[in-house]
């Protein structure tokens, strides 16, 4: 891995974090709580992928990276489902 890859990962994480905060702070009323929650969790999942792949080195082990991606993706879907229950309840 080169410094360029590490630096790109860092910029990516900063961008995704800023996007999460901006969407949660400024677009909840426009997009609705469901879409905002979905986007925030997608960004969290993407950040986790960057850390696992680039910082923890799983880019060298594609099978494990894919397994972690699926597990974390399903976990984020579970969180989104729990978050949306009160939104869709009468």
């Amino acid at each position: 891995m080169t410094f360029d890859t590490i630096t790109r990962a860092w910029f990516g994480l900063l961008f995704l974090s800023a996007a999460s905060v901006l969407i949660a702070a400024g677009f909840t009323e426009t997009l609705g709580a469901g879409a905002t929650g979905g986007l925030v969790l997608v960004f969290a999942w993407m950040k986790a992928r960057v850390i696992l792949s680039r910082y923890l080195g799983l880019w060298q082990a594609p099978v494990w990276l894919s397994g972690f991606n699926w597990a974390l993706g399903l976990f984020c879907l579970l969180l989104l489902g729990l978050f949306l229950i009160p939104e869709v309840s009468p």
Binding site: L13, S17, S20, V21, A24, G37, V40, L41, F43, A44, K47, A48, I51, L52, Y55, L56, L79, F83
Partner: peptide, 21 residues
């Protein structure tokens, strides 16, 4: 550093759920 990245990894999941969602 793997331990440190684990701490980082947990935070990027914890932060949006508690502070944003």
């Amino acid at each position: 550093t793997a331990f440190w990245h684990m701490v980082d990894l947990v935070w990027v999941l914890l932060f949006p759920v508690i502070y944003l969602l």
